[in-house]
């Protein structure tokens, strides 16, 4: 298990390539990456992510450990950035590996649902209309109830 919280960009290709490399027992690897988005009436020039140093790492570790308890996983990777980033830049990634795909897929979705609303990150968008904090969506909180 590896948890990384950093300001600098990460190399998605290299991380995906290295994840679970050389392990013959892992038949499935799922990766997800979240990207800064700017669209139509919501034009974003910069997204800034604030976090709670110390608690962030602990919360991500706890979420990853919970995933490892619920599914049979060979490995888990979570990388999440903070600081300013532009549309098209990768914000975060998760990777899960398991013997069969069901565990890897479900665990990746679980990780995403939990880090949306249980990891101490706050997004602020700077765009043509000024600056605003991104509001948490009710559906993101509701998504936790399915697990």
């Amino acid at each position: 298990m590896r948890i990384v919280v950093q300001e600098t960009p990460f190399d998605f290709g290299a991380e995906a390539e290295a994840f679970g490399a050389g392990r013959g027992d892992l038949g499935a690897v799922v990766t997800f990456t979240g990207v800064v988005r700017s669209e139509g009436d919501r034009s974003v020039s910069v997204m800034e992510i604030e976090h709670y140093p110390g608690m962030t790492e602990a919360a991500l570790t706890e979420i990853a450990q919970e995933a490892a308890r619920r599914w049979t996983l060979g490995d888990v990777l979570v990388i999440h950035r903070y600081g300013p980033m532009k549309p098209g830049e990768r914000i975060m990634m998760v990777a899960t590996a398991s013997a069969h795909r069901k565990d890897a897929f479900e665990a990746a979705e679980f990780l995403m649902d939990y880090l949306k609303s249980r990891a101490p990150f706050w997004k602020r968008e700077v765009g043509a209309d000024g600056e605003s904090w991104v509001s948490a969506k009710d559906e993101d909180v509701a998504a936790l109830t399915r697990w």
């Binding site: 709670y52 608690m55 975060m92 949306k116 609303s117 249980r118 101490p120 990150f121 509001s135 948490a136």
Partner: peptide
């Protein structure tokens, strides 16, 4: 003790 709005990670 820390106070903050609902989190928006991911």
């Amino acid at each position: 003790v820390a106070f903050f709005p609902p989190m928006t990670g991911g």
